[in-house]
Design a protein around this nucleic acid. Sequence first.
DNA 1: TTCTAATTAGGAATCATTCTTGTTTAAAAA
DNA 2: TTTTTAAACAAGAATGATTCCTAATTAGAA
Lengths: 128, 128
Amino acid sequence: MIKRNTLQKKLVLESVNHLQNHPTADDVYDDILKEYPHISKGTVYRNLNALAQESVLKKISIPNAADRFDHKNMPHYHIKCLICGDFFDVDFEYMTALNENIASLTGFVMQSHDIVFSGVCPKCQRHS
Amino acid sequence: MIKRNTLQKKLVLESVNHLQNHPTADDVYDDILKEYPHISKGTVYRNLNALAQESVLKKISIPNAADRFDHKNMPHYHIKCLICGDFFDVDFEYMTALNENIASLTGFVMQSHDIVFSGVCPKCQRHS
DNA sequence: TTCTAATTAGGAATCATTCTTGTTTAAAAA
DNA sequence: TTTTTAAACAAGAATGATTCCTAATTAGAA
Protein backbone atom coordinates (compact mmCIF):
# COMPACT_ATOMS: atom_id res chain seq x y z
CA MET A 1 0.00 0.00 0.00
CA ILE A 2 2.00 2.97 -1.33
CA LYS A 3 0.85 6.35 -0.21
CA ARG A 4 1.41 9.81 -1.48
CA ASN A 5 1.48 12.93 0.59
CA THR A 6 -1.06 15.23 -0.87
CA LEU A 7 -2.01 18.68 0.27
CA GLN A 8 -5.60 17.50 0.63
CA LYS A 9 -4.63 14.72 2.98
CA LYS A 10 -2.68 17.15 5.11
CA LEU A 11 -5.61 19.56 5.20
CA VAL A 12 -7.95 16.80 6.30
CA LEU A 13 -5.71 15.75 9.15
CA GLU A 14 -5.08 19.31 10.28
CA SER A 15 -8.76 20.01 10.24
CA VAL A 16 -9.67 17.03 12.41
CA ASN A 17 -6.97 18.05 14.83
CA HIS A 18 -8.05 21.63 15.20
CA LEU A 19 -11.78 20.93 15.18
CA GLN A 20 -11.79 19.48 18.63
CA ASN A 21 -15.11 17.74 18.83
CA HIS A 22 -15.41 14.55 16.80
CA PRO A 23 -16.15 16.24 13.48
CA THR A 24 -18.23 14.54 10.82
CA ALA A 25 -16.95 14.34 7.26
CA ASP A 26 -19.18 17.28 6.51
CA ASP A 27 -17.75 19.35 9.35
CA VAL A 28 -14.28 18.71 7.99
CA TYR A 29 -15.37 19.53 4.47
CA ASP A 30 -16.90 22.86 5.52
CA ASP A 31 -13.81 23.69 7.52
CA ILE A 32 -11.39 23.05 4.68
CA LEU A 33 -13.55 24.93 2.19
CA LYS A 34 -12.62 28.19 3.90
CA GLU A 35 -8.99 28.03 2.91
CA TYR A 36 -9.16 25.62 0.00
CA PRO A 37 -12.43 26.16 -1.86
CA HIS A 38 -11.99 23.42 -4.45
CA ILE A 39 -11.69 20.35 -2.28
CA SER A 40 -14.34 17.77 -3.06
CA LYS A 41 -16.36 15.86 -0.55
CA GLY A 42 -15.20 12.54 -1.97
CA THR A 43 -11.63 13.52 -1.24
CA VAL A 44 -12.50 14.32 2.35
CA TYR A 45 -14.17 10.95 2.80
CA ARG A 46 -11.34 9.08 1.12
CA ASN A 47 -8.69 10.72 3.26
CA LEU A 48 -10.62 10.38 6.49
CA ASN A 49 -11.04 6.69 5.86
CA ALA A 50 -7.42 6.30 4.80
CA LEU A 51 -6.22 8.02 7.96
CA ALA A 52 -8.49 5.79 10.02
CA GLN A 53 -7.05 2.75 8.30
CA GLU A 54 -3.54 3.94 9.07
CA SER A 55 -4.68 4.33 12.69
CA VAL A 56 -3.91 8.02 12.64
CA LEU A 57 -7.57 8.78 13.23
CA LYS A 58 -10.37 6.80 14.77
CA LYS A 59 -13.70 6.44 13.04
CA ILE A 60 -16.68 6.38 15.38
CA SER A 61 -19.99 5.01 14.19
CA ILE A 62 -22.88 6.86 15.75
CA PRO A 63 -26.31 5.24 15.72
CA ASN A 64 -28.62 7.02 13.25
CA ALA A 65 -26.14 9.74 12.42
CA ALA A 66 -23.09 10.47 10.33
CA ASP A 67 -19.80 8.84 11.29
CA ARG A 68 -17.39 10.95 13.24
CA PHE A 69 -13.62 11.10 13.38
CA ASP A 70 -11.42 11.46 16.38
CA HIS A 71 -7.73 12.11 16.60
CA LYS A 72 -6.47 8.97 18.19
CA ASN A 73 -5.49 9.21 21.81
CA MET A 74 -6.26 6.42 24.18
CA PRO A 75 -9.22 4.27 23.22
CA HIS A 76 -12.23 5.59 25.08
CA TYR A 77 -15.97 5.34 25.25
CA HIS A 78 -18.73 7.68 24.15
CA ILE A 79 -22.07 8.81 25.44
CA LYS A 80 -25.00 10.14 23.49
CA CYS A 81 -27.93 12.22 24.68
CA LEU A 82 -31.23 10.75 23.52
CA ILE A 83 -32.86 14.19 23.54
CA CYS A 84 -30.47 16.64 21.91
CA GLY A 85 -28.27 14.11 20.12
CA ASP A 86 -25.03 15.60 21.42
CA PHE A 87 -22.35 13.23 22.38
CA PHE A 88 -19.18 13.26 24.36
CA ASP A 89 -16.15 11.33 25.42
CA VAL A 90 -16.47 9.38 28.61
CA ASP A 91 -13.51 9.63 30.93
CA PHE A 92 -13.45 5.99 31.98
CA GLU A 93 -10.60 3.53 31.68
CA TYR A 94 -10.63 1.22 28.67
CA MET A 95 -11.48 -2.31 29.79
CA THR A 96 -8.72 -4.34 28.19
CA ALA A 97 -9.66 -7.45 30.11
CA LEU A 98 -13.03 -7.46 28.37
CA ASN A 99 -11.37 -8.12 25.04
CA GLU A 100 -9.61 -11.14 26.43
CA ASN A 101 -12.73 -12.49 28.07
CA ILE A 102 -14.75 -12.22 24.92
CA ALA A 103 -11.93 -13.63 22.81
CA SER A 104 -11.78 -16.82 24.80
CA LEU A 105 -15.55 -16.99 24.95
CA THR A 106 -16.10 -16.63 21.20
CA GLY A 107 -12.91 -17.87 19.56
CA PHE A 108 -12.53 -14.51 17.81
CA VAL A 109 -9.15 -12.86 17.45
CA MET A 110 -10.19 -9.66 19.13
CA GLN A 111 -9.25 -6.25 17.88
CA SER A 112 -11.23 -3.84 19.98
CA HIS A 113 -14.59 -2.97 21.38
CA ASP A 114 -16.67 0.15 21.42
CA ILE A 115 -19.21 1.22 23.96
CA VAL A 116 -21.85 3.84 23.37
CA PHE A 117 -23.89 4.84 26.37
CA SER A 118 -27.32 6.40 25.95
CA GLY A 119 -29.14 8.64 28.34
CA VAL A 120 -30.25 12.19 28.97
CA CYS A 121 -27.59 14.81 29.42
CA PRO A 122 -27.61 17.27 32.34
CA LYS A 123 -28.66 20.16 30.12
CA CYS A 124 -31.69 18.32 28.75
CA GLN A 125 -32.64 17.16 32.24
CA ARG A 126 -33.01 20.79 33.22
CA HIS A 127 -35.19 21.59 30.22
CA SER A 128 -37.81 18.96 31.05
CA MET B 1 -50.21 7.32 21.73
CA ILE B 2 -53.10 5.22 20.49
CA LYS B 3 -52.24 2.16 18.48
CA ARG B 4 -54.16 0.01 16.09
CA ASN B 5 -53.64 -3.65 15.51
CA THR B 6 -53.01 -4.03 11.84
CA LEU B 7 -52.27 -7.16 9.88
CA GLN B 8 -49.05 -5.56 8.67
CA LYS B 9 -47.80 -4.98 12.18
CA LYS B 10 -48.52 -8.58 13.09
CA LEU B 11 -46.70 -9.81 9.99
CA VAL B 12 -43.66 -7.69 10.85
CA LEU B 13 -43.46 -9.04 14.37
CA GLU B 14 -43.98 -12.64 13.27
CA SER B 15 -41.30 -12.27 10.66
CA VAL B 16 -38.70 -10.96 13.10
CA ASN B 17 -39.51 -13.80 15.43
CA HIS B 18 -39.18 -16.56 12.90
CA LEU B 19 -36.17 -15.08 11.09
CA GLN B 20 -33.81 -15.93 13.87
CA ASN B 21 -30.74 -13.87 13.08
CA HIS B 22 -31.10 -10.14 13.61
CA PRO B 23 -32.88 -9.36 10.34
CA THR B 24 -32.54 -6.01 8.64
CA ALA B 25 -35.63 -4.13 7.52
CA ASP B 26 -34.95 -5.47 4.06
CA ASP B 27 -34.77 -9.06 5.27
CA VAL B 28 -38.14 -8.61 6.95
CA TYR B 29 -39.59 -6.97 3.86
CA ASP B 30 -38.45 -9.82 1.59
CA ASP B 31 -39.78 -12.38 4.04
CA ILE B 32 -43.23 -10.83 4.26
CA LEU B 33 -43.45 -10.35 0.49
CA LYS B 34 -43.80 -14.11 0.07
CA GLU B 35 -47.16 -14.29 1.75
CA TYR B 36 -48.30 -10.70 1.43
CA PRO B 37 -47.02 -9.26 -1.82
CA HIS B 38 -48.37 -5.74 -1.38
CA ILE B 39 -46.67 -4.66 1.81
CA SER B 40 -44.57 -1.55 1.33
CA LYS B 41 -41.11 -0.98 2.68
CA GLY B 42 -42.17 2.15 4.50
CA THR B 43 -44.71 0.10 6.42
CA VAL B 44 -42.03 -2.37 7.44
CA TYR B 45 -39.79 0.43 8.68
CA ARG B 46 -42.63 2.15 10.49
CA ASN B 47 -43.69 -0.99 12.30
CA LEU B 48 -40.18 -2.10 13.15
CA ASN B 49 -39.49 1.26 14.72
CA ALA B 50 -42.85 1.29 16.48
CA LEU B 51 -42.20 -2.16 17.93
CA ALA B 52 -38.76 -1.05 19.05
CA GLN B 53 -40.31 1.98 20.71
CA GLU B 54 -42.79 -0.26 22.51
CA SER B 55 -39.80 -2.33 23.64
CA VAL B 56 -41.17 -5.40 21.90
CA LEU B 57 -38.14 -5.44 19.62
CA LYS B 58 -34.66 -4.09 20.01
CA LYS B 59 -33.04 -2.02 17.28
CA ILE B 60 -29.32 -2.61 16.86
CA SER B 61 -27.17 -0.08 15.04
CA ILE B 62 -24.42 -1.77 13.10
CA PRO B 63 -21.41 0.29 12.00
CA ASN B 64 -21.52 0.87 8.25
CA ALA B 65 -24.50 -1.32 7.65
CA ALA B 66 -28.25 -1.37 7.90
CA ASP B 67 -29.88 -1.44 11.31
CA ARG B 68 -31.01 -4.80 12.57
CA PHE B 69 -33.85 -5.89 14.80
CA ASP B 70 -33.82 -8.41 17.55
CA HIS B 71 -36.68 -9.90 19.48
CA LYS B 72 -36.08 -8.62 22.93
CA ASN B 73 -34.63 -11.04 25.42
CA MET B 74 -32.10 -9.91 27.92
CA PRO B 75 -29.93 -7.01 26.84
CA HIS B 76 -26.77 -8.44 25.39
CA TYR B 77 -23.69 -7.52 23.40
CA HIS B 78 -22.69 -8.15 19.82
CA ILE B 79 -19.54 -9.06 17.95
CA LYS B 80 -18.71 -8.32 14.36
CA CYS B 81 -16.17 -10.02 12.11
CA LEU B 82 -13.95 -7.49 10.36
CA ILE B 83 -13.39 -9.87 7.44
CA CYS B 84 -16.74 -11.37 6.50
CA GLY B 85 -18.96 -8.82 8.21
CA ASP B 86 -21.06 -11.45 9.99
CA PHE B 87 -22.08 -10.72 13.47
CA PHE B 88 -23.39 -12.57 16.44
CA ASP B 89 -24.73 -12.32 19.95
CA VAL B 90 -22.16 -12.53 22.70
CA ASP B 91 -23.19 -14.72 25.62
CA PHE B 92 -21.84 -12.46 28.34
CA GLU B 93 -23.72 -10.95 31.25
CA TYR B 94 -24.96 -7.40 30.85
CA MET B 95 -22.88 -5.09 33.03
CA THR B 96 -25.54 -3.15 34.90
CA ALA B 97 -23.02 -1.59 37.24
CA LEU B 98 -21.40 0.13 34.29
CA ASN B 99 -24.50 2.23 33.74
CA GLU B 100 -24.43 3.42 37.31
CA ASN B 101 -20.73 4.20 37.19
CA ILE B 102 -21.04 6.25 34.05
CA ALA B 103 -24.19 7.98 35.32
CA SER B 104 -22.44 9.31 38.38
CA LEU B 105 -19.38 10.17 36.34
CA THR B 106 -21.22 12.17 33.69
CA GLY B 107 -24.42 13.39 35.33
CA PHE B 108 -26.47 11.69 32.64
CA VAL B 109 -29.66 9.88 33.44
CA MET B 110 -28.56 6.60 31.97
CA GLN B 111 -30.76 4.44 29.85
CA SER B 112 -28.51 1.74 28.48
CA HIS B 113 -25.26 0.96 26.81
CA ASP B 114 -24.28 -1.08 23.80
CA ILE B 115 -21.03 -2.82 23.15
CA VAL B 116 -19.88 -3.98 19.76
CA PHE B 117 -16.74 -6.07 19.69
CA SER B 118 -14.64 -6.32 16.55
CA GLY B 119 -12.29 -9.05 15.56
CA VAL B 120 -11.81 -11.98 13.21
CA CYS B 121 -14.22 -14.88 13.52
CA PRO B 122 -13.00 -18.50 13.77
CA LYS B 123 -14.11 -19.27 10.22
CA CYS B 124 -12.15 -16.37 8.73
CA GLN B 125 -9.13 -17.26 10.83
CA ARG B 126 -9.01 -20.63 9.07
CA HIS B 127 -9.21 -19.03 5.63
CA SER B 128 -6.14 -16.87 6.12
C1' DT C 1 12.78 16.34 -16.85
C1' DT C 2 9.91 12.61 -17.91
C1' DC C 3 6.81 9.15 -16.72
C1' DT C 4 3.09 6.80 -14.50
C1' DA C 5 0.24 5.15 -11.07
C1' DA C 6 -2.07 7.42 -7.29
C1' DT C 7 -5.04 11.01 -6.24
C1' DT C 8 -8.01 14.64 -7.33
C1' DA C 9 -12.55 17.43 -8.58
C1' DG C 10 -16.97 17.21 -9.77
C1' DG C 11 -20.83 15.07 -10.11
C1' DA C 12 -23.65 10.85 -10.70
C1' DA C 13 -25.01 6.74 -8.31
C1' DT C 14 -26.15 3.96 -4.33
C1' DC C 15 -28.12 2.54 -0.10
C1' DA C 16 -30.75 2.91 3.99
C1' DT C 17 -34.30 5.38 5.63
C1' DT C 18 -37.98 8.83 5.93
C1' DC C 19 -41.55 11.58 3.98
C1' DT C 20 -45.66 12.71 1.04
C1' DT C 21 -50.08 11.96 -0.97
C1' DG C 22 -54.10 9.92 -1.73
C1' DT C 23 -56.53 5.60 -0.16
C1' DT C 24 -57.94 2.14 3.08
C1' DT C 25 -59.32 0.46 7.54
C1' DA C 26 -59.56 -0.56 12.78
C1' DA C 27 -62.16 0.49 16.16
C1' DA C 28 -64.88 4.07 18.63
C1' DA C 29 -69.38 6.21 18.50
C1' DA C 30 -73.99 6.44 17.03
C1' DT D 1 -75.09 -2.79 12.65
C1' DT D 2 -73.75 1.31 10.23
C1' DT D 3 -71.27 5.51 10.31
C1' DT D 4 -67.33 8.17 11.26
C1' DT D 5 -62.60 9.45 11.51
C1' DA D 6 -57.98 9.40 12.82
C1' DA D 7 -54.45 5.95 12.27
C1' DA D 8 -52.12 3.19 9.21
C1' DC D 9 -51.45 1.85 4.56
C1' DA D 10 -49.17 1.47 -0.52
C1' DA D 11 -46.45 3.44 -3.75
C1' DG D 12 -43.10 5.99 -4.85
C1' DA D 13 -40.50 10.48 -4.37
C1' DA D 14 -37.17 12.72 -1.44
C1' DT D 15 -33.30 12.89 1.70
C1' DG D 16 -28.77 12.31 3.68
C1' DA D 17 -24.56 9.94 4.10
C1' DT D 18 -21.35 7.81 1.54
C1' DT D 19 -19.19 5.66 -2.47
C1' DC D 20 -18.24 5.34 -7.26
C1' DC D 21 -17.00 7.05 -11.96
C1' DT D 22 -14.29 9.59 -15.36
C1' DA D 23 -11.24 12.65 -17.10
C1' DA D 24 -7.61 15.73 -15.43
C1' DT D 25 -3.85 16.60 -12.27
C1' DT D 26 0.22 15.50 -9.58
C1' DA D 27 3.71 13.26 -6.14
C1' DG D 28 7.44 10.95 -6.32
C1' DA D 29 10.29 7.39 -8.76
C1' DA D 30 13.37 6.75 -12.62
